[in-house]
């Protein structure tokens, strides 16, 4: 039974770390309609910043400041935010699929920079020995992971509460107005360009937080963690959970990561060992099938957007 508890704790840590990135994407796509196809890139910036700020010193590699965990988290968010501000300003005239193509290209570029800029990122060897703060405060893998889960839950809770407050504020209503019709919003004196940039930066900062939490947990970062498949996974989580709903974003992360991992578990149990080497293909089919069926049954995601009608709108 201990094994099961231990695994569930581990599962929740990983899926909630993904959930943080999904919350960031939800602010951008769900509420503002920004098609960011570069999630992996902004997660990578946060992850590497965390590794550089909190990791141990290494010969021939920059960084190794051994700063505290919380400083690392804040630094990661700041770095992702700065990266996003530059990208956001450069792409401010792009919408929809054009923005998607641009951000996708930027994410690929960031991954290649991580791969090649050895002095900063350790190149293809990555950065090792990133401390996990829970290891200093607890004994045994289960206690350590439970403590780390607590830290992830606090991060998710704060992010969730802040986002809920933001999207219900006047600024949040402005996001939706711009998403629905930016010409109409501009005619009311709002500045869609500026608000889009703000939402983009804020969303990317949250993705950076996700990357930082992942790196501290795993203790290692390499360019191979930020391939385009990560962007795809985060997007799938948002679409399945229901975009423009923060609860949906978190639920989507749990469900999609659950399907992703559980399908492998089930195949290892059900498929006879002689043909398990072919099981990888079956797992991919199973993941695809479950996602397609979910979307057919619930096209707006498991929990879609809650519709609000103004109190002042009368018949």
């Amino acid at each position: 039974m201990i094994g099961l508890v231990s695994y569930i704790v581990f599962f929740l840590i990983l899926s909630l770390i993904f959930g943080v990135a999904v919350l960031g994407l939800n602010l951008q796509w769900g509420f503002t309609g920004l098609f960011n196809a570069g999630v992996a890139g902004f997660t990578a910036i946060g992850a590497y910043t965390m590794a550089i700020l909190t990791g141990p010193a290494r010969d021939a590699v920059f960084g190794g400041f051994e700063l505290p965990f919380v400083v690392g988290l804040i630094g990661a968010m700041a770095a992702s935010g700065m990266g996003a501000a530059i990208v956001g300003l450069a792409t401010s005239s792009l919408r929809h699929e054009y923005l998607a193509v641009a951000t996708f290209g930027i994410a690929v570029t960031i991954q290649l920079v991580c791969l090649n800029w050895e002095y900063l990122t350790g190149g293809t060897l990555g950065l090792i020995g990133i401390p996990n703060p829970s290891k200093a405060w607890a004994d045994g893998p289960l206690a350590q992971n439970a403590l780390y889960l607590l830290m992830v839950l606090v991060s998710v809770g704060l992010t969730f509460a802040a986002l809920e407050r933001i999207v219900k504020s006047p600024w949040g209503r402005m996001l939706k107005a711009i998403r629905e019709d930016d010409v109409a919003a501009a005619s009311l004196g709002k500045s869609p360009e500026r608000v889009r940039l703000e939402a983009f930066v804020l969303g990317c900062m949250i993705m950076g937080l996700s990357g930082a939490l992942y790196v501290s947990f795993i203790g290692y970062v390499s360019p191979w963690d930020f391939l385009p498949i990560l962007t795809f996974q985060i997007w799938t989580m948002l679409i399945v959970g229901g975009s423009a709903n923060n609860r949906g974003a978190l639920l989507g992360a749990l469900i999609v990561w659950g399907v992703w991992t559980m399908s492998g578990f089930i195949i290892s149990r059900v498929v006879p060992s002689e043909i398990q080497a072919q099981g990888g293909a079956m797992q991919a089919v199973l993941i695809g099938l479950i996602l397609v069926v979910t979307l057919l049954i619930r096209p707006r995601g498991l929990i879609g957007e809650e519709l609000h009608v103004s109190r002042h709108a009368g018949p």
Partner: peptide
Amino acid sequence: VEYVLRDTQGQSAVGVDAAKSLVDLDG
């Protein structure tokens, strides 16, 4: 001996989860 194979799909997060599941659930 029973050989329990899990796919990593070449992704670190998937591989880490598979390993943890083998250790915790399969012992």
